[in-house]
């Protein structure tokens, strides 16, 4: 039917110019406006980034140009006592690193082992049951994990290691629970990496007389190593940026310590505590949290970029 109409010769009255007119490019203003609006929606994300960088950098600049503050002492000092004008970031950074390290000690083996089980061993049915449970764990708000750290993990640690040895607020408890928090993330990203290892490699290993474990550990995991590494890097970044668990369970007050059973304050924990109180704008306290925020932003950004870079190279290997 359609083709009939199309193939019918042009009516005589319709001369060449009117055809030209009918097919001429028509400005579609509505279309252009819509495309423009959608483009603006995309630009909002750019503005967000610019906003973050500008806010953090400008306030941090104010902080560093304050008389009491020396940028060298900021990066070398181990005491953070605003009242005395001492702003040494290391007391906050060590706590952050310690909690992230403890978290990774929990999340790395548990997450990778779970990923191997789900990818190499579990039947589709078991996978179908376990994956939603991991999703539930990933969906629980961090403040609930903080509550869990304070009311379950800390008492447990104090029971095991002695009330005198373990303070009520301590980095061990916070770190372990941050670890639990990021297990689902490590698992899901590592599992994706293991999954993308071609089946032919597993068959080759079996064909040489390898057992299932030998195939999994010595062929599949090494083949997925870059993806797994990327997962770990992202997880570290997540642990460093985690706030509520440490704000609740790690303690309030910067302290330069390497004892996981003592209280200490992380970068994020400090920002939350300072901004949660009555804070007057443009005070040195107010500006200092932006300096910490800038450092935090840069660390996590670098980690995320590294992870993406590793993943990019990994993809090239197999596709």
């Amino acid at each position: 039917m359609e083709s009939d109409t199309v193939l019918r010769p042009l009516p005589r009255s319709m001369d060449a110019t009117s055809t030209e007119k009918a097919l001429a490019k028509r400005p579609r203003i509505g279309e252009t406006i819509i495309e423009g609006l959608l483009f603006l929606a995309g630009v909002v994300s750019i503005l967000t980034t610019i906003g973050i960088v500008w806010v953090l950098a400008s306030q941090a600049l104010l902080f560093f140009t304050t008389e009491e503050v020396s940028i060298i002492k900021f990066f070398t000092g181990t005491e953070w006592i605003p009242a005395l004008g001492q702003f040494g970031i290391w007391s906050l950074v060590t706590a952050t690193l310690m909690i992230s390290a403890i978290a990774m000690l929990v999340a790395l083996p548990a997450g990778l082992a779970t990923a191997i089980y789900l990818s190499e061993y579990a039947s589709p049915r078991t996978r179908g049951t376990l994956k939603p449970i991991l999703e539930v764990l990933a969906g629980i708000p961090t403040v609930v994990y903080g509550y869990f750290a304070l009311t379950f993990m800390t008492p447990l640690l104090r029971q095991i290691f002695g009330v005198d040895n373990v303070q009520v607020f301590n980095t061990a408890s916070a770190g372990m629970v941050v670890g639990i928090l990021i297990i689902p993330m490590v698992t899901s990203l590592s599992e994706d990496a293991l999954h993308s290892v071609p089946n032919s490699l597993r068959q080759a290993a079996y064909g040489l007389g390898a057992t299932k474990l030998e195939t999994a550990i010595r062929v599949v995991v090494p083949a997925a190593l870059s993806g797994i590494t990327a997962a770990f890097v992202v997880a570290i970044s997540r642990a460093i940026g985690e706030t509520m668990i440490v704000a609740i369970a790690a303690g309030a007050g910067p302290k330069f310590t390497f004892n996981p059973f003592e209280s200490a304050e992380t970068m994020t924990g400090h920002i939350v505590r300072i901004s949660g109180g009555d804070l007057s704008y443009d005070s040195i306290d107010y500006n200092s949290i932006f300096a910490i925020g800038l450092l935090l932003f840069l660390i996590t950004l670098v980690l995320n970029v590294i992870s993406r870079f590793i993943v990019g190279r990994f993809r090239e290997e197999y596709e």
């Binding site: 032919s200 068959q203 080759a204 290993a205 064909g207 083949a223 290997e317």
Partner: peptide, 8 residues
């Protein structure tokens, strides 16, 4: 196997 599948 059909397709060469050396380990990485």
């Amino acid at each position: 196997f059909q397709k060469p599948n050396p380990f990485p």
